[in-house]
Design a protein around this nucleic acid. Structure first.
Lengths: 340, 340
DNA sequence: ACACTTTTTGCAAACGATTGCATTAAAATC
DNA sequence: GATTTTAATGCAATCGTTTGCAAAAAGTGT
C-alpha cells in the first residue's frame, strides 16, 4: 500500500506538502503541485480515508434513515428514487451514503444513536416524518445536522424539510378532475399518520370547496391489506356511485385498480382514477394512470445538498425546500376520448 | 466525546484492557469485564470506527455495485429487494453497505478502483454480470473479495456466484403453461446480454422440446421502449396467434400487458401471460400475473454472508450458491376458471 | 517459602493522515 | 547591502484504536 510518506519520500518533500497538494492548498507553489501530482499518479496514491477521518473528525458519510417497514419500501419506487438521488448527489460532493432501515422504532433509534457515537456519519437524511419522532428530537437536541424529506405534522420549526407542496398538488389534481367533468370524487387514504396524507386531503377539500362541491367531498380511509381494500370498495360502490377515485399514493392506487378490475368495474368508463407519485405502477398500469409526479430523485438531491451545507457550515440558516410537482394526465381520467 | 482512554481512566485500567473487553477477548477476567462494561454503559462509550479501521486495516464496509442504468434500477423492484437483503445481512454482521451505481462502465470502474484504494470497502457485491467485465477482471487480479449476484455468461470459474437456477425455473414455468393446455408459447426477451436471459431461454426451449413442442417454440426479442414493444406485439398478433407469452422479467411484462390492454387483447382469455421476478408489478397487475418468485432478498443475504466470510478467511474455498425459486400461479394463466 | 505455571493486565509502538506554528528561502523595500 | 515582507515548505504533535510482547499477579505443587 502506498502512503503519503511514500510519495513524500519519492518527491523529496515532507508529508505535509503532499497532504496540501492533495487538497489543493493555496500555499504550495504550482511547480511542486505539478511535480507531486505526477508522482501520486505514477505511484497510484489515494488517501486512506480512515486516517483522514480520524484526524479531521469527519466521516464524509451521510446516513439515510428509512422509516417505513421494509416491505413497504420495497413496494414503493418512491423510496428507490430518493435513494438514487441521494447517492448521486452525495457522491459528487465526495460523500458516501449509508442506509438504515428498520422495522421498529426502537431499533431504528438505537441504530441512529450508534451511527453518531461511532462517528460513522456526519449528518442524516430522514425519509419520513411523523409527530413527535424520537429520532428528530434526539438529533435536534444534539444539534446534529439533518434534514427531513417530507413534512412534519406539527411543523416543529427546528428541522429542515425538503418536500413537495402537497396541498397545492392535490388541489391541482382535484381541479383537473373537476375540469374533466367529475363531481362525485372520493379521496381514498390509508391509515398512516404521515403529514403527507393531511396535506393532500386538505388540498382536495379546498379544491372541492372552491368549486362549490363541498357537499360531494368525501374521504374514505382503509387499511392496506387486500380484504380491507375490497371491503372499502364494495361498500363504496354499493351505497354510492363515485365518478372518480383520488388515491393517496401510487401503491395504494395499484391495489385499488387491481381490485376494481376483479370487480369488473372499468376505468375510466365506470370510474376514473388518479393518484400521487409517478412510478412503473402508475405508468404501466391498465389503463395508464393520471398521476402527480413528485420528483423523488430531486427530493433526494436537494436534501443531500442541504445536509452537506449544514455539515460544512455550522451556522447556516435553516430553510425549507419545496420541490415542484407536475401532473401527468393519462387514460385513467379521460372521459370523452377513445382508448388506445 | 468519550474515548477509550476516558473509560480506562474511570475504570483504573489501561486502554488495552478496555479494548479487549470491547471485543470480548478471552484473556480478560470476567470480573473486569463486568466492571468495565458497566462503566462503558454509564459513560456512553462507543468505539471510534475510523480509529479502529486505521489500525485494523479494515473498513467493515461492503460495496454494492449496481450496474444497470439508474432508471432501470428504479423501475425494477428486484434491485430494491436485493439492496435491503444486503443491508440487513451486513448490519447483523457489523458491516455497513455503500452503494455505487453509475450510468457508464468507465465511471463505474473508476469508482470501484477508488473505493478500494481509499480503503473504503473490504469487499464487493456485484449486482450484474456480463461477459468480460473489467470490474470482475480487476477484482480477480487483485484478489479482492467479491461475489456476483447473477451468473457469468462464460462462468469464469474464479468468481463466486449467487444466483437462482434460471434454467430450471424457466423449465418449470413452461411446464406449467403446457400443463394448463397452452402450446403456442412465445418467449419475449429484451436485448440485454446478461446471462439470465440465456438461461431462461434455455429452460424454456428444453421444456418445449421435452414435451414435443419444439416446432412451436418461439423466442422474440425487442427493445425496451414503448414503440418497439408495440411493433413487436402487433407483428406477433398479426402473423400468428400465440396462446401464451412468457416474458423475461417483470418490468418488461408490465409494459407488455399495458400494451395488450390498449390493443384490447384480454388476459387470459385471448392470451395468457407469465413472467419472472415477483413484485408489485406482477402482484397488483390487472389481472394478477403468474410469476416465478426469485427471492431477491435472499440473494442479497446469501451474497452478503458469503463475501463477509471471504473477507474474514482468505483461503475460504469458493463456492457458488443457488437460491431456490417458487412459482406463484395467478389469474393471468388460468384458462378454465372464472375470474375474481 | 520457593520455583514454576497460568492468568490477567499494561507498555508502547504502530496505523496514515492533518495542521498550527516555526522556519527557511526568495522577493521586495529602502 | 541590510532589513523587512512575503511565499513556500517542514516539524512534530495529534486523532482513537489495536496488539505483540513483557510484566505482574495469582495459583500450584513440593
Amino acid at each position: 500500500m502506498v502512503t503519503i510518506k511514500d510519495v513524500a519520500k519519492a518527491a523529496g518533500v515532507s508529508p505535509s506538502t503532499v497532504s496540501r497538494v492533495v487538497k489543493d492548498h493555496p500555499g504550495i507553489s504550482s511547480d511542486t503541485k505539478r511535480k507531486i501530482r505526477k508522482i501520486m499518479e505514477q505511484m497510484g496514491y489515494t488517501p486512506h480515508v480512515a486516517a483522514r477521518n480520524l484526524v479531521t473528525k469527519r466521516s464524509y458519510t451521510i446516513g439515510l434513515v428509512v422509516k417505513s417497514a421494509v416491505h413497504e419500501a420495497v413496494l414503493n419506487p418512491f423510496f428507490t428514487e430518493v435513494n438514487f438521488g441521494v447517492s448521486e448527489a452525495c457522491r459528487t460532493k465526495g460523500f458516501s451514503t449509508i442506509m438504515t432501515a428498520a422495522e421498529d422504532d426502537d431499533s431504528l433509534f438505537l441504530e441512529v444513536k450508534n451511527l453518531i457515537s461511532s462517528k460513522r456519519v456526519d449528518g442524516f437524511i430522514l425519509l419520513y416524518s411523523k409527530e413527535n419522532d424520537p429520532v428528530i428530537e434526539y438529533l435536534t437536541s444534539m444539534a446534529f445536522p439533518f434534514v427531513v424529506i417530507g413534512k412534519d405534522v406539527m411543523n416543529s420549526g427546528d428541522a429542515i424539510h425538503v418536500d413537495n407542496d402537497n396541498v397545492q398538488a392535490a388541489k391541482e389534481m382535484t381541479e383537473l378532475l373537476i375540469a374533466e367533468g367529475y363531481e362525485d370524487i372520493v379521496m381514498v387514504v390509508d391509515n398512516d399518520v404521515f403529514a403527507v396524507s393531511q396535506d393532500r386531503i386538505a388540498g382536495f377539500e379546498q379544491a372541492m370547496a372552491s368549486n362549490g362541491l363541498s357537499s360531494k367531498c368525501k374521504v374514505v380511509q382503509c387499511d392496506k391489506d387486500e380484504s380491507s381494500i375490497e371491503r372499502m370498495l364494495v361498500d363504496l360502490f354499493d351505497h354510492t356511485s363515485p365518478q372518480a377515485l383520488l388515491t393517496l399514493d401510487g401503491v395504494l392506487n395499484a391495489r385499488i385498480i387491481s381490485r376494481l378490475y376483479q370487480m369488473q368495474i372499468r376505468i375510466p368508463e365506470d370510474v376514473a382514477t388518479a393518484t400521487f407519485s409517478e412510478s412503473p405502477l402508475t405508468k404501466f398500469a391498465a389503463p395508464p394512470q393520471t398521476v402527480v409526479d413528485i420528483y423523488p430523485k430531486e427530493l433526494g438531491k436537494e436534501a443531500s445538498n442541504e445536509v452537506i451545507m449544514l455539515i460544512k457550515d455550522d451556522n447556516r440558516l435553516k430553510r425549507n425546500i419545496t420541490v415542484p410537482t407536475r401532473i401527468i394526465e393519462r387514460q385513467s381520467t379521460k372521459k370523452e376520448e377513445e382508448k388506445g
